[in-house]
Simulated scan of single mutants.
Amino acid sequence: MQKGIKFRAYPNKEQQNLINQTLGCCRLIYNKGLAMRNVAYENGFKVGYSHTSAMLTELKKTSDFAFLKEVDSIALQQSLRDLDRGFVNFFQKRAAHPTFKSKHNNHQSYRTVNQRDNIRIVDKYIKLPKLGYVKIKQSMEVGKINNVTIERTPSGKYFVVLNVDFEPELKSNKGGSIGIDVGIKDFYSDSNGNVVHNPKYLEKSMRKLAREQRKLSRKQKGSINRNKQRIKVALIHEKVANQRNDFLQKQSTMLVRENQTICIEDLNVKGMIRNHKLAKSIASVSWSKFFTMLEYKAMWYGNDVIKVPTMYPSSQTCSCCGHRNPLVKNLAIRNWECPECHTKHNRDTNASINILNKGLEVA
């Protein structure tokens, strides 16, 4: 199997300049390839990766684009492959039409491929094409490196994301089965009666974030002080993202280690975000990312993640007798009593038990 590993990088000034130059060149080639393909399709011609690659070769021969020879040639080719993949996804209706990249986007990255072991980790450094040895903060051992993505974040930090081969070691778990009902006030309730509260990292940082964004709005566009203030805002967003990611990683790992079967709802999160009253809260709690983590970790270690159909009325059904109470459709009702068997239910705990039972039935 393959997985991604992310390390913080500490390039020196010369390496930073070369990384920034490579990012600019990759963006230039991507945009030129996109323009070429757009014009070709408008005129009824079919253009693929081979045509844009030939265009790149011709550009390098001209004096106006001689600077393209100074950066990693594989990175330039990979930007054209990304463009080609974007068109494939578009024609197969998996994504929107590719758009031009902007230098004003503060999150930039490029990818390069490991050929003949030209990318490797040596002590506290990683050797990268053209850049040489870049200092990194390595937090774990890595296997065979397939490719590397070099990222520059809005806060001005640099990271290397390694795509590596690894053999997952099947870890023993407690063999349990659990149902998960996610929410906004509580992150999730499980069928064992446990409740994990939503840490609300974004909401806790909103006051500070609003203050720093007001300061940013007062700075003159294009000024050095505006860029300094932009970085302060970016650092707040970055901290929130790191806190949320750490929380999701720990919760998903705990569930995979303790349970063999995990049952979840097959939620249409993208559709739910269209509700403008709940969009911010749903985006902040990151259900999709949590479910993705559960799925890939379960695949690594041989667990089962079962998705219950979206329209299954888990909250309205009594987990004891199966009676469906349509009055519970109102989200304001958090506790209710079954009119048939008179069992008192907590809405979320009852839903998680029903999700578990339905998941085991589907499996």
Rank of each mutant, 00 (worst) to 15 (best):
T22E: 02
L216V: 02
K289H: 03
T349R: 12
K6F: 00
K61L: 11
N325Q: 10
Q2Y: 07
N106R: 14
W287M: 00
Q220C: 13
I306Q: 05
C26T: 07
F67N: 02
M140N: 12
I184W: 06
G156T: 04
G48R: 07
E212H: 11
Q229M: 10
R244K: 03
D266E: 14
N354Y: 03
V47M: 14
D82Q: 14
G175V: 01
A35N: 10
K215P: 01
S102D: 10
I19W: 00
K185C: 13
A75N: 07
C341I: 08
M254P: 03
H237W: 06
K144R: 14
A95C: 00
K13E: 14
S189N: 10
G143W: 00
I29V: 15
G4N: 12
I353K: 15
K270A: 15
Q92D: 09
Y301L: 10
A351Q: 04
V142Y: 02
Q316R: 13
A54K: 15
I121G: 08
V308M: 12
D186P: 02
G143H: 02
F91C: 14
A210L: 05
M1A: 02
N325W: 02
L356S: 03
F67H: 12
D246W: 05
K93M: 11
L170Y: 06
M206G: 11
N198L: 06
K228Y: 02
G24W: 06
T52Y: 01
Y49D: 02
V328F: 07
A75M: 06
K60W: 06
P339G: 12
H342L: 12
T99S: 15
N335L: 01
E265F: 06
I262D: 07
Q220M: 13
W300K: 01
G193I: 02
K61R: 15
Y49Q: 04
A363K: 14
K144V: 12
A96T: 06
L23T: 05
V47D: 08
A96V: 01
